[in-house]
Nucleic acid binder design. Structure first.
Length: 1046
RNA sequence: GGGCGAUUAGCUCAGUUGGUUAGAGCGCGUCUCUGAUAAGGACGAGGUCCCAGGUUCGAAUCCUGGAUCGCCCA
């Protein structure tokens, strides 16, 4: 009869095993089968947040892909149809930057000289540079997703769906062109959206300056010649100072300062006098800001005349945004360079004068500084202010300043025309949609994400770039504007079929306005890539042009998962687009993942050289280990301190433990040619019933936790089960396995197979390998249904826990007494009452064997081993007595322990008197512990204790020696390289006492060591492996000869 | 400056609705067990639960303030 199972190496190469499983998946087309077999079942919808493939995948990508995989696998096993369409984010500045690097060019002029068509062709290629590596990694880590049918944001169909969405937004009058101050990257030549700005803050030291603005036409209680003191951290904006803003409600002070060069008078906010002017200042007058409105002053630079700004140029204006928190309480206003500035300018009709060109340099109006990058001019301007006597003070100012997230150029705030989506008008809907989402962790919902929505600003949609979805807006010189919602519509208007909707081809498509006949040309902008990805729920299916039914079936998503940094990225764009277009959230459950840092807590970066490449981990430990680490080492949202070794720990502690339990089963099943039947529901043996109950308990927990998107506690519950299985069930049941006990085999096999099903979503490789070898009734464990919860015996679970605790106490007592477990002892004396005693009595065989004692003797009180200690149970008494607890504790301490012990044993209640009131307390209200007793080998814990009778008689000593001999022979067998089932003949020689012991227990020795015969002659005539050893100082010579199998 | 989160043993992390002796794994030391297991078990060393106040009979846990770190926003 052939062996029932493939033999299993007890020291496996997990990565090699995984490769063979991958091969089997390919052969059997398991992923596809797992999806198609659920066709027609209720769907569970997952949306893939598309990565950009123009960089190598890192370990953080493995993190998100592991979590993106586990829940769809779980739901599939639960019977849901879980289609998983892959996706790629293809557009955007990162791609352009990469191509610019390849081409060695650095500006938009360069790109246009190079040619937009050719440039975009390069971008298209670049996007998929590392696609092969992405695909290879995706497959290797067992991330099941349909890569062949992945959506790509660059496809014409995808773009058309995006156009459709924009047209919906246009029709709702929520798409507009605004003239706004935007964060602008002068190098990339484009405005950045707020979520892009969020990516690039870094701490920098800038010059901050206090500057005198002399009053030339005073209003209110100030005089000509006084100086308005203003503060700014951007000296380069002073050249286009248009006005000074004050808060009309704030109190200002007119301050006299004695100086070496004479006295002077300055105006600052009263609250800031000390900070700005310092000591020695004399406040001459106090007044509200409104009192000095309209005051005219002399600007710091005269490149641009005051009249150019309009009537209110170079005057003091009221602005409610001004505070006394920093600076001077008087705010320099440069209309083109700040959001508040711009709004103030609009309010007072100031002209927008922007002397800074799109490349970030001054134009010819700024005289000697023309042509220089503005940030580089800061220092020269400060010097000029000092020379002209305008500078009050200059100091370094460290603050976080936004930089371009791709090219690191400091951003400028800059008034530019730009296209917006009026998300502020649907803020309430966005917040309502957010309420329908389950966030993991919970605090994101009303914390980070909720707060972000509360502070929502209009979505700056347009980018003056090349490689992106073109903004489908056409307009005439007369100002007529149309938003095109489909290729068909454009073709109908223009007569030109859209072949490639990208620039520059789409730019060439023009048409006559249907009414006026004016020529309509497309605006030059492309759109924010985040809109692309936010449109994926419908755009991935080319809905509504095709597959509208598919889209509707798969909207919204049940589950999405990305890293925390997507709060303002994809999480926002998905919610915003679907709220704009569909009026609701496009996802129901989100798992947010934290950042990965190295062992030292440092962010991983290429420049620091501390990046752990995913392949390194996979080659060393395998994909299951990688995934297991992410799932169970901690809750995923707080980030990981990650290293290759950290993954290895999980291999040793969990995967190898599971594997070796499996290897153990196969070893003995094959050795005994055992093919167990189905597991019994209620086996007779307590251990069998216990492990099955534990299995069912774990199944319940795992399903409950996975339903709550909590892989961590689900995984840890499985690890506990595997530990119980390996270190208690198998350990306690070994003899039954080598005796060929079919019930034990059936139980262990059932546990292992069920564990593979519970664990399959976590560790898809090792589980499939084990399943395939032990069961294999499906082509893969991933085609199985998730296990259902069977019968539990919670009483038995508790009893086993008590028995294990008792064993622990007994072993501890042995350790204290320095008596080896191999030496049998006569008696263990156990103190336990009530349920504990019942539990230990029921488990007496286990306790006796584990402790290697001949008998257990129970004593029900403390009489022999110590006295009782009674303590109040605060947990139950606290809520009842509240602030009387100190009195209760005192009353309990005053009780007679012997009487209380007797009362509790008989189930009676105890009376106590608190503040003259009588109360009764029961056994649950008291904690009974054993008090220590000097001079006895007793170990106690809580209310039970174990003591050992250490007296050894000749029989016990003899049996101990026999066990020593068995142990020595087993070591020799192992050293000789024998298989566990090999039979031997055994020769023993040496110390007479030892030989006597072996003779006395000959049947035991030969049975344990599989010896067909034992000879006690010295090694004459035997041929075999000889080993010498000493037992308690006595010599023993062992000769082993393998017996040829019959 | 504001928001969110974090801070528990040398390291990585748990810690239930507040309950009086704060746990686990790794690492270290001493023992021990072994017909699966580079495994397991027992014991030991190792903690001002970031700090300071407060609430409470009782705080790692709740509140306030502060420190440090991370992310985000100005």
């Amino acid at each position: 009869m052939p062996a029932p199972h493939r033999p299993v190496d007890s020291r496996p190469s997990l990565p090699a095993m995984e490769e063979s499983v991958l091969e089997r998946w390919r052969e059997r087309d398991v992923f596809r089968a797992s999806v198609t077999r659920r066709e027609g079942s209720p769907p569970f919808v997952f949306y893939e947040g598309p990565p950009t493939a123009n960089g190598r995948p890192g370990s953080h990508h493995v993190l998100s892909r592991a979590f993106k995989d586990i829940f769809p696998r779980y739901k599939t096993m639960q019977g849901f149809a879980v289609e998983r369409k892959g996706g790629w984010d293809c557009h955007g500045l990162p791609v352009e930057i990469e191509v610019e690097k390849q081409l060695g060019i650095t500006s938009k002029d360069d790109i246009e000289r190079y040619g937009i068509a050719e440039f975009n062709a390069r971008c298209r290629e670049s996007v998929f540079t590392f696609l092969e590596e992405w695909d290879r990694l995706t497959e290797r880590i067992g991330f099941w997703i349909d890569l062949e049918d992945a959506y790509r944001t660059l496809d014409s169909e995808y773009i058309e769906s995006v156009w459709w969405a924009l047209r919906q937004i246009w029709d709702k009058d929520l798409l507009y062109e605004g003239h706004k101050v935007v964060p602008y990257c002068p190098r990339c030549g484009t405005a950045l959206s707020s979520h892009e700005v969020a990516l690039g803050y870094r701490d920098v030291v800038d010059q901050s300056v206090y500057v005198r603005f002399p009053v030339v036409s005073a209003v209110g209680p100030i005089s000509n010649g006084d100086s308005l003191l203003i503060w700014t951290t951007t000296p380069w904006t002073l050249v286009s100072n248009a006005a000074v803003a004050i808060n009309p409600e704030l109190t200002y002070a007119r301050v006299e300062i004695k100086g070496d060069d004479g006295d002077e008078i300055v105006i600052v906010a009263e609250a800031l006098v000390e900070r700005v002017v310092g000591e020695g200042a004399r406040i001459l007058d106090r007044f509200l800001g409104s009192a000095i409105e309209d005051t005219k002053y002399d600007p710091p630079f005269s490149f641009i005349a005051g009249e150019e700004y309009g009537d209110r140029g170079h005057t003091v204006l009221a602005g409610d945004f001004v505070t006394a928190e920093d600076g001077s309480g008087l705010v320099h206003t440069a209309v083109a360079f700040g959001e508040d500035d711009y709004r103030l300018g609009a309010q007072y009709g100031l002209a927008v004068i922007n002397p800074v060109k799109l490349d970030g340099t001054y134009d010819e109006r700024i005289g000697e500084y023309a042509g220089r990058f503005v940030k580089d001019v800061d220092e020269d301007l400060v010097k000029a202010l000092r020379d002209s006597g305008r500078l009050w003070r200059a100091q370094d100012y460290e603050h976080a300043y936004p930089h371009c997230w791709r090219c690191s150029t400091p951003l400028l705030y800059y008034a530019k025309p730009s296209w917006y989506i009026a998300t502020t008008k649907i803020r309430d809907q966005l917040m309502a949609a957010n309420e329908t989402v389950n966030w993991h962790p919970e605090h994101i919902k009303h914390g980070r994400f909720g707060k972000w929505l509360e502070g929502n600003v209009d979505w700056a949609l347009s980018r003056e770039r090349y490689w992106g979805t073109p903004l489908p807006v056409w307009r005439s010189e007369a100002g007529e504007v149309m938003c095109i919602g489909s290729f068909a519509e454009l073709e109908e208007l223009s007569g030109v079929a859209v072949t490639d909707p990208h620039r520059p081809y789409v730019d060439d498509i023009t048409f006559a306005h249907p009414q006026s006949g004016n020529e309509m040309r497309r605006v030059p902008e492309v759109i924010d890539v985040w809109f692309d990805s936010g449109a994926m729920p419908f755009a991935q299916y080319h809905a509504p042009f095709e597959n509208q039914d598919v889209f509707e079936r798969r909207f919204p998503a049940d589950f999405i998962c990305e890293a925390l940094d997507q709060t303002r990225g994809w999480f926002y764009s998905l919610l915003a687009v679907s709220t704009l277009v569909q009026g609701e959230s496009s996802y129901k459950n989100v798992v947010c993942l934290g950042l990965i840092v190295d062992e030292a807590g440092q962010k991983m970066s290429k420049t620091k050289g501390n990046v752990v490449a995913p392949w390194e981990v996979i080659d060393q430990h395998g994909a299951d280990a990688f995934r297991w680490y992410y799932f169970t080492s901690k809750q995923p949202w707080d980030g990981y301190r990650f290293s290759v070794d950290a993954v290895g720990e999980g291999v040793r502690q969990f995967l190898l433990q599971l594997w070796n339990t499996y290897a153990f089963y196969v070893l003995y099943a094959n050795a005994g040619e055992v093919v167990p039947g189905p597991v019994e529901q209620q086996p007779a043996d307590d251990l069998d019933r216990w492990i099955i109950s534990r299995l069912n308990a774990t199944t319940e927990v795992v399903a409950e936790r996975l339903d709550a998107y909590d892989a961590t506690f689900a995984g840890r519950a499985i690890a506990e089960l595997v530990d119980d299985l390996s270190n208690w069930y198998v350990r306690r049941s070994r003899r039954r396995f080598w005796d060929g006990d079919l019930v034990a085999f059936a139980t262990l096999r059932h546990c292992l197979v069920t564990i593979t099903q519970l664990l399959a979503p976590f560790c898809p490789f090792i589980t499939d390998e084990i399943y395939d070898n032990l069961d294999g009734s499906e082509a893969s464990v991933h085609l199985c249904d998730f296990p259902t919860v069977g019968v539990r015996d919670e009483v038995l679970e508790v009893e086993m826990a008590i028995a294990r605790e008792t064993v622990r106490l007994g072993l501890k007592a042995r350790g204290q007494a320095k008596v080896k477990v191999r030496q049998p002892l006569g008696e263990a004396v156990i103190v336990a009452v009530g349920k504990e005693r019942e539990a230990i009595e029921r488990m007496a065989d286990i306790v006796r064997e584990e402790l290697n004692v001949k008998a257990l003797r129970f004593v029900s009180g403390a009489d022999e081993l110590g006295s009782l200690e009674i303590k109040p149970n605060y947990r139950s008494l606290g809520p009842r007595f509240g602030n009387q607890m100190p009195a209760v504790a005192a009353a309990v301490a005053a009780l007679d322990t012997a009487q209380v012990g007797a009362a509790l044993r008989e189930g009676r209640e105890i009376g106590i008197t608190i503040d003259g009131q009588d109360h009764t307390i029961g056994s649950d209200d008291l904690l009974v512990a054993m008090a220590p007793l000097e001079g006895y080998e007793v170990e106690r814990e809580g209310s039970h204790a174990v003591a050992l009778d250490l007296t050894l008689d000749a029989d016990l000593r003899c049996e101990g020696q026999a066990r020593e001999i068995v142990h020595a022979v087993q070591s020799a067998r192992k050293n000789a390289g024998l298989a566990v089932e090999d039979r031997i003949t055994l020769g023993l020689a040496g110390d007479g006492g030892l030989l006597d012991a072996a003779r006395t227990h000959e049947a035991y020795v030969s049975g344990e060591t599989l010896a067909t015969a034992i000879s006690f002659d010295d090694d004459q005539g035997t041929v075999g492996v000889v080993e010498s050893t000493t037992i308690d100082g006595a010599q023993l010579r062992i000769t082993i000869t393998a017996v040829a199998p019959a």
